[in-house]
Nucleic acid binder design. Sequence first.
DNA 1: ATCTTTGCAAATCCTTTGCAAGGTT
DNA 2: AACCTTGCAAAGGATTTGCAAAGAT
Lengths: 144, 144
Amino acid sequence: MGNKTVAVVIRDLASKGHRLTKTRRWMIEVLMTSDYPINAIELRYLFANRGLRVNKSTIYRELEFLVKQGVAREVQIVPELKHYESAYLEHHHHLTCRNCGRIEKLVNEGLELEMEKVERLAKESGFSVSEHQLEFYGRCESCI
Amino acid sequence: MGNKTVAVVIRDLASKGHRLTKTRRWMIEVLMTSDYPINAIELRYLFANRGLRVNKSTIYRELEFLVKQGVAREVQIVPELKHYESAYLEHHHHLTCRNCGRIEKLVNEGLELEMEKVERLAKESGFSVSEHQLEFYGRCESCI
DNA sequence: ATCTTTGCAAATCCTTTGCAAGGTT
DNA sequence: AACCTTGCAAAGGATTTGCAAAGAT
């Protein structure tokens, strides 16, 4: 889940002068404890299932806020909509099942080393890489 | 530009019974000769600048058609809209400038080898990877 | 002549925005 | 009380769809 707890993140936001609303706490909690990236629509369902009514504008605005605060991070899994995950997770990638949509986390050190190598090479040719986005797609165990 | 010429692709489509319209030829030509991935909106501008009036529905439908025919491929560069490139290009990735939007091609063999290694590993744990999507972001030479 | 492709207009879907009301400090 | 956040409704922007007209073989 990363190196910061929900409580600490909330306290840090408060100390920066941000208001701690129910929705803000919920969103931080869900994002930081989820095992996979979530999108705005899933978030609304999650909240609704818990009996929490949150307007969609609020969801989108809060996601934007959390990204700006360095709490959440945007992940491009599918082109149709944006997914978000905790920004405190160790660097990783995902395996997304094209059949059922399940998203698994993938951590691989060799890949990271190779990526850094490529980024150094890019730098030498004049391009300064700030981040990368790598996603794998295919079929998960349950979908053969 | 890949291992097939525009003429051959067009001939192959014809031999499969598909009609060869002016728009279809243009789109294939543009996609196959472009140095970087293009999106539907840029395509319309490109056509308009050449004095070619093409309806947006046609652009979207034709892109879908070309992907289905294995001529074009979808690339997720930014979450806002879809980019497309020739499907006949050698396997590669992109460096996208966050400042000016310029997209450069990046070919790196070491990276591919590492990627294959990861995909074999995934397979062992039950996930069968069919493709991956890797994009680098940062600042290009002209944008410091 | 037949069957595919196009244009047009309207519809969809995710996301954003303006503004007044409500909540937090 | 000050001002950040929310809800609501409407707007935006990319993409899709139904249908009749136009075009390719």
